[in-house]
Simulated assay, not measured.
Amino acid sequence: MAIGRLAGYSTQQVRDLERLGAIPPAQRSANGYRRYDHRHLVALRAYRALAAAAGPVLARQLMPVLLTGTVDEAAERIDELHAAIARGRSQLREARSGLDAVLVETGEVFEERDAMTIGELAQALDVRPSALRHWECEGLVRPDRGSPVRHYGAGAIAEARIVAALRSGGYRIPAIARILDQLRSQGLTAEARELLDQRLAELTRRSIALLDAAGHLHEFLNQLYQTATEAHPIA
């Protein structure tokens, strides 16, 4: 299938993506064969770029929405991807700062007024308070429970930043727990450094890949806009 070769997919993959609604349905010729055109190539390339950046699951979920929704809705979803890039970059910087705070022993006394409540920390990390409670139950974050109200000091804040960044990058709880255990007991061991560097590099790669995907998504979105305009011309 020529369309598959141009997009870098097998014939079966193209058919599967059509079945899932990730690309427009193909027209059928008189003998029943599928007929693909430039619209399908643009959609396939947009899907491929999006899958490389955000993962195939998100791409399979998003492409049907872009295809069947309004142009305004499609543009809004693309804007959300750019916002996700910004959040990822922010989390990456905070993870590096948190890592420094955990590893560097300055000897300075942490002032109580700098501690955060669970609500303040959740807002700073852009997560739900329930996520912080879950991380506490898993032993990932250790707030001060000397009073009925949780208070997060320097170490807990730094570790929460690391957890938030790694969770957003796809790390599972056991792997994060292993990293934090090593940081707490041995400092930055070779294994902990490798795991952290791999995940932080992956977050950077995904951010850059989303920027690359934006070009393909722009072409795809522009094509949708032109199609909508042709179907409903402005008087």
Rank of each mutant, 00 (worst) to 15 (best):
Q12Y: 06
E108H: 00
H134W: 13
E194S: 12
R45N: 12
G88T: 12
T227Q: 15
R48F: 03
E108V: 00
T229I: 10
P64G: 09
Q61V: 08
L221T: 12
V163C: 02
G32K: 01
A59E: 05
L180H: 01
I85R: 14
P233N: 09
T227I: 14
F220E: 05
L196D: 02
A86T: 14
L210H: 08
E18N: 02
R145L: 11
A131L: 15
A53V: 04
L50T: 13
S97Y: 03
S10R: 02
G153T: 00
R206F: 04
A51V: 07
W135G: 06
A95G: 13
I162H: 01
Y171M: 14
A156M: 01
Y9R: 08
D126V: 15
R87E: 15
S168G: 14
P24K: 06
T11N: 08
S130P: 06
G146Y: 00
I176K: 07
G69E: 12
L195Q: 13
G187C: 03
E230T: 15
E112D: 13
V102W: 00
H134V: 11
I179C: 09
H38M: 03
Y225N: 14
Q123M: 13
S90P: 01
E94F: 07
E202C: 06
G32F: 00
R15G: 04
E202A: 12
E76N: 07
L67F: 10
G32E: 02
M116Y: 01
G139V: 04
A74S: 13
A115I: 00
L224K: 15
D72M: 07
R199H: 12
R93T: 13
S29C: 01
A213D: 03
V141M: 04
T68K: 13
T229A: 15
L50S: 06
T70N: 13
T11W: 09
R35H: 11
L20V: 06
L67D: 11
Q12P: 01
